[in-house]
């Protein structure tokens, strides 16, 4: 090792002159390099997650198909049949779709017992399920985050009251309560609202836990010492740091809601005829399982597809937000 040894490091700019700069342990701030915000880093990691990308594709595909095929509101339809008109049975109502040689045929998903086009029905059901799931995902996340953050930050009696209310919601069996509420509520938006009011509890507890640990961090103390008010601290300093937990929990809530809605509709408390949903389709045709199995399989596959892809998306997001769960290079 020679005395005038200089580290031949690529990090060193040849311009560095003084001893302090050459042998600084601090990285030189490379101004030519692009600056990544944490959000950008997360996005980068997310888009490299293969499972999440496939799931995103599947979910987008299902959503686009469900909303364009039979139309929704102003969105025009490209499928020529509706979910309420019955037609003549073709080939005993069996699905006409074939993979090899590929053909779609008259009724790709088959027909139900009275000759309604089952593709249109499934698409209608998927629409309903997606609407309920995403509305609930959004609303319950907002409610849960707010309640959790307020309880965690203010502590004291505010926390005591809010958390006891949360406990109250948790101890009531969700299915029973949802069933009662579902009976009273009519219409899909009501259903979504009611379900949101029941499913925020898990997130509220999660966020409260996060906030409890974040509020002891020094940057919060620093903000407080500067004179920052409580609401600004919550929204500007604490919540942005819990965004990972919140987003991940929201995706998982969406998956859970799809299943909950299906379960409710299956029991007859959710969406009711003449409207339809995936759960209702399964329940209506459960007796036909042996004779016309496709009536069970198509909505079942849709539920599976949506729930799985949303779950995988949540996994991908969690990995992206938490770089400490190191994935070794493949």
């Amino acid at each position: 090792m020679t005395d005038n040894h200089r580290p031949d490091d690529p990090e060193h700019t040849p311009a560095a002159s003084s001893v302090e700069e050459v042998y600084s342990v601090e990285k030189q701030i490379d101004l030519s390099q692009k600056s990544y915000s944490q959000g950008q880093l997360v996005r980068r990691r997310f888009f490299r997650h293969r499972g999440a990308m496939v799931s995103l594709f599947v979910l987008v595909f299902i959503t686009v198909m469900a909303f364009t095929s039979i139309g929704y509101g102003l969105i025009p339809s490209w499928w020529d049949k509706t979910f309420y008109d019955a037609g003549a049975a073709v080939d005993g109502g069996r699905p006409t779709m074939q993979l090899w040689p590929f053909q779609i045929g008259e009724h790709p998903f088959g027909q139900d017992t009275i000759g309604k086009d089952y593709f249109a029905l499934t698409m209608r059901g998927t629409q309903r399920s997606l609407i309920v799931a995403f509305t609930v995902g959004l609303l319950s996340t907002v409610i849960g985050t707010l309640i959790g953050a307020i309880a965690g930050f203010f502590r004291g009696w505010v926390e005591a009251i809010l958390m006891r209310v949360t406990d109250l919601f948790i101890i009531i069996p969700l299915l029973v309560l949802a069933a009662v509420v579902g009976k009273m509520a009519s219409g899909i938006w009501w259903l979504a609202l009611m379900l949101s009011l029941l499913t925020w509890t898990g997130l509220a507890r999660l966020v409260r836990g996060e906030v409890l640990s974040l509020r002891e961090r020094e940057f919060v103390t620093a903000a407080e010492a500067i004179g920052t008010g409580p609401w600004r601290i919550i929204f500007k300093h604490i919540l942005p740091n819990t965004i990972g937990t919140i987003i991940v929990s929201a995706t998982l809530a969406i998956a859970a809601t799809i299943l909950l809605e299906s379960a409710l509709s299956f029991l007859g408390y959710g969406v009711r005829a003449p409207d339809t949903s995936l759960g209702l389709l399964i329940s209506t045709y459960q007796n036909a399982f042996l004779t016309r199995p496709w009536l069970f399989w198509w909505p079942g596959l849709m539920i599976l597809g949506i729930a799985l892809s949303v779950n995988f998306l949540g996994d991908g997001l969690r990995d992206a937000f938490d770089p400490r769960q190191n994935r070794t290079a493949d």
């Binding site: 944490q38 940057f219 103390t221 903000a223 004179g227 500007k236 300093h237 942005p240 740091n241 965004i243």
Partner: peptide, 22 residues
């Protein structure tokens, strides 16, 4: 609050005392 305006503070751990999202 008006008093806090006239006081500055530096903490020990620079990694913890700056908001990572700001």
């Amino acid at each position: 609050k008006p008093l806090r305006k006239r006081i500055g503070v530096i903490f020990q751990d620079p990694a913890a005392s700056l908001n990572p999202r700001l």
